[in-house]
Every structure is written in C-alpha cells, then in structure tokens.
Design a protein around this nucleic acid. Structure first.
Lengths: 291, 291
DNA sequence: CATGATAACTGACTTAAGTCAGATAAAAAT
DNA sequence: ATTTTTATCTGACTTAAGTCAGTTATCATG
C-alpha cells in the first residue's frame, strides 16, 4: 500500500538521496573532485590532523596523504609536524584555502536558504528536519557539562520554561519557582549537563547541591526533536553518575502532573515517591533516590 | 549560532548523507558495483526499456548498455526488441533477477524497519519524514483524476473528514453533510482529482456536477505533510481547468470558519462571497466563481 | 524511397576512488 | 637499549564510473 511505514521511510530516503546528490553535484562546479573537496571541508570544519580527517571521512591513509599533497600544491593547505607527537602532522588552511572553503560553505548555505525560502512554513520544515536528524544521529548524542550561565544552558532553560508554560494549566513563571542559583549547579556543589546532537543542544539537566544531606535534580528537558530516543534516561544516568562522583548520598526532585512521561520515567528508574520537601507552588509529585 | 535555520538545515543534510551512504554501502554486500545494483533496482521498479533506465538514473547510454550486458551474462535480465519500435529494447528480469531484486528490496526494507523500530514514536518520525520528502519532491507532485470510489480517493476523503472532525468545534459527521454521491464526481458530470507525491496521496478535490447552472467544488484537502507548498492553489487551478473543459459556466463552494486558510485562499484567487445556497449544517461561508 | 533523426550498442579512452605492500621516522613498551 | 607500535607517506596497482566518437538498425517524414 502507499502508506505502510516502510514505504513512507523509503520515499523519504529516495527524496533525500536526490537532494543530497544535487548538493554533491554543485560541489563539482568548483573543478575539484568530490573526494578532495570533502577533505578540504573536513579541514575547514576543524579536523586538525591527518588521522582525524581519515577517521572522519573513513578513507585510506594513502589516499588522504595524496589528496593533501594535491591541496598543498594548489596552495590551499599547509602541514606541519605536531610538536607534541612528531609522527602526527597538523593540517591548516592557508588564506587561499580559507577562501576556497568559504566558497564551498557558501554553496551549501545558499542551497539551504533556497530550499527553506520556498516553503511557506519554514519553521515546520525545520522542526521535521531536526526530528529526523536527531533520530539518525541518536548514537552520536554527546553529554557535556557546561556552565549554567552559558548561552547554551540559557537556551535550554528558556525552551524548558516555554514548554512548562505551554503545558501547565495556569502557565509557568520562573520568578515564582525556586530558580536554582547558578553557583549551586557548578562543581563541586553541582553540575549542569547539556546533550548535544551534532552541536545542537537537545536536552539538559541540572544537579543542584545546596546542603550536605541531598542534592536536587532540576530542569530536566528534552527537545521535541529528540523525544522517543531514550535521551531522558541517558541524561538521568549521567546526572546520577556525577552525583556519585561528588559524594552526594541522596537525590531529590519534584515534578508536575502535567508531565506524565517524566513521572512515569522516575517511577520506572528506581525513584521512590516522598512527601513534599519544599514550598515551590508548581510541583505535584516529589521523589528521591538513594545512591 | 547553533540554531540558525541554515545550520539546522545543514545538520539535517549531514545526518541524511551518512544514513543514505550507509544504505549504499549495504548494497555493496551483494558483490556487485553500486551502479549495476542501481540499474537492477530501476528495472525491478518498472523501468521497462533502456532509455527509461537511462533517464531515471541520469547515465550515459553506453554505460547503461554495458551494465545491461553484464546483467544479461549473470542471467539476471533479458532484453527483447520493442514490438512497437524496433530500435527500442525492452528489459525484463529473469526469475533469478527477480530474486536478486527482492534481496535488494529486503535490504532496504530491513533498514527502514530497523530505523523505525528504534524510535519510541515511529509515527512522529514518519510524519516528519513525509513532510521533508514532500518539500524536497514538491516539483514532482502530480495531479491525476481517479475514481471517487477507489481506495486512494477513499483514503483522502477519510483523512479530510478526520481533519474536519478535529477542527470543527462540534466535530464532523459525514452523514449530516451533503455527501456527494460518487456518480456526480465522475466525467462527464464531474471529476475527482488526487495529488500524488512519489505515489503517496497528498491532496484531493472533487468537482460535483448536479445541475446545468453550476458545479460545486467539494472536499478540498491537503495532507499536513504537503502544506506550505502551494498545493491547494495548484489543485484548485486544475479543478477549474477541468470545469472549463466540461463546459461548466459557474463554480460554487461552501466552507467553514474553522478553515481560515481555505477562506483566505478563495478570496485571494478570484472567488466572490455569496449567500447561502444549500442547507448543509456545517458551512459558514459560500463562494462562487464565474468561468 | 531517400534523408535525417533516433535508440542502442561497441571500443577506446580518462578520471576518480580505493587498495595494498612496504618505507620511514617517531613514540611507547619491554 | 632494544623491540614493537603507530602515523604518515610513497609507489604500484585495481576497480568503478563516466566520456566520447563512431556504428548499426530502425523509424519518421517529405
């Protein structure tokens, strides 16, 4: 039938192949084989030495070597031995190489802009693309600790608050809630973890240490694009590991009945429901977990 | 920034490239170069003669010829002259070729099933994929007249009714509405048009001819995945063209205030609002357009 | 029926991409 | 201090993919 899941998936694959193939083809317009263009782009995107390029593009060592010699002859890249390890070679773009890389970037950017401009609702298209990209890249999602006052952290918290405002019956106002002061979410008292999928933040959680008895898990958020991938479990496992590392004996958290997925997950992952332990106006449920 | 539209688009492109590349790679497992495998697949998907294959895959005539000779030697395909045009050659799969094609299909299907099975909400992932695929394939959307009693037509109408039920304040019950009898949406009295994107139905409209004075436009629907592509305009232009062809002097339609995009589109495309011309309980607005 | 156009084919070629077996030099392990 | 491992490079090769000029048979058209 025209609607079974496999057909729909494969329709998507076909459409993407031709779109992606068209991008490759546009790269050929700069008179350089695709393989060489890809190496140049890898360097431009910060792949700093030969083995990194090789790993990133999955190419044979000899092949990369030869392509680098070619780019050197064109005057686009320079290689110098790594001072820390004389076997390795560090590859950098010359000014001419930067210009060439910028030209390739411009091609990709134009293509993206053009495709988006044709759609009457680009935000809907981008949301769909985010979802697909997150699903494809699910195994590459990386958790990193960041400063809770950094731009990424503030972005995640903003999205989290906006989601609460949408889902809580009477909305959500950060000022009324116990806003974790940033200092309590920085080591050694606590931590703030952000999940990145290919540099895009797709989730976060805060570990707030305020007293010796316990620490609190706050601001668990998963971007709509990354839901269904088990990311919340992964983030929670990480925050528990950090808490153990910091010597926290007990974790507590509160949550709201408007977030049933979260409540269900806590119940299923070893948290036990307890009595109210704060006077925050929003939460309906309170949990703790001994480490 | 990590969130500007171009970065998001390109993140999607990167993720799709590796996913699509992995599919190509899995094809290599059957000991045949990718180009040859693609030719075999083209034949399996109904590309019946050499020029069709060539056009579909965008390949050189000599190259396709050679690959076909190879497949013939393997005993996977047979070519016979086209009885209607002796220059053309018709290519068919032998039983062994069918088996080989099925094996490739199974690889793609497995891959799709596997990717979908990993997601906790496959329907959300598929909806996103449908949206992206429709946007990429927007220029290939084809309008075809079908029998309003056919499976595709019934599918479209079902989706249309479900959408009305969601959007109308008091729901929607087909039985209460003037359900166009199929006969009035078949030539010469009327027509039923379905929009296909790569074999998936993404929109429809009915032209219902019941009297000599005018015909009615009914059941205009665009799938959520295909919204933002200007498809409604295209469908309406087509239905008007068909009406002219049938010698209809005047078109009428009714619509509901819960569908403001539709109302806005009618106003912007030459329709004039008129008084109620039927006693259907649902519509709030009535339009006509002289041809 | 002569002429030109078209579809498929063949042979001779080029380029891109990848593989593989050493060579070399530096680092790490014993 | 010697051996082993690792990172990169070179040269010699293979395969895949594509290009192009020219051939043959058939079709379409005046």
């Amino acid at each position: 039938m025209f609607l079974d899941p496999v057909s729909r998936f494969r329709r998507f694959a076909r459409a993407s192949v031709s779109e992606v193939g068209a991008l490759d083809h546009s790269f050929l317009g700069r008179g350089r084989p695709l393989g060489v263009a890809r190496v140049l782009n890898a360097i431009g995107h910060g792949k700093g030495d030969v083995s990194e390029i090789r790993a990133y593009l999955g190419l044979d060592s000899g092949l990369v070597s030869r392509m680098l010699r070619g780019l050197e002859e064109e005057g686009l890249v320079e290689t110098t031995p790594d001072p820390a390890d004389g076997r390795r070679r560090i590859v950098t773009l010359t000014p001419a190489g930067e210009a060439e890389f910028a030209a390739y970037e411009a091609l990709s950017d134009d293509r993206a802009r053009h495709a988006l401009a044709r759609h009457a609702n680009p935000e809907a298209l981008l949301a769909a693309m985010d979802l697909v990209a997150s699903a494809f890249g699910r195994d590459q999602i990386a958790l990193r600790e960041v400063d809770p006052r950094s731009d990424v952290a503030r972005y995640c918290l903003g999205e989290y608050y906006a989601e609460l405002a949408r889902r809580f019956e009477r909305g959500f106002d950060v000022a009324l809630s116990a806003d974790p002061e940033a200092g309590s979410m920085i080591r050694p008292r606590g931590a703030f973890v952000v999940a990145f999928s290919d540099d895009m933040p797709v989730g976060c959680v805060g570990l707030k240490g305020t007293c010796a008895d316990y620490a609190e898990v706050k601001r668990l958020w998963v971007a709509p694009a990354a839901r269904g991938l088990g990311l919340a479990w992964k983030i929670m496992a990480q925050v528990e590991a950090i808490a153990r590392e910091l010597g926290v004996p007990l974790l507590r958290l509160d949550t709201n009945k408007a977030l049933p997925e979260a409540v269900a997950m806590y119940r299923k992952s070893g948290w036990t429901e307890i009595d109210r332990f704060n006077d925050d106006p929003y939460p309906d449920f309170f949990f703790e977990k001994r480490l």
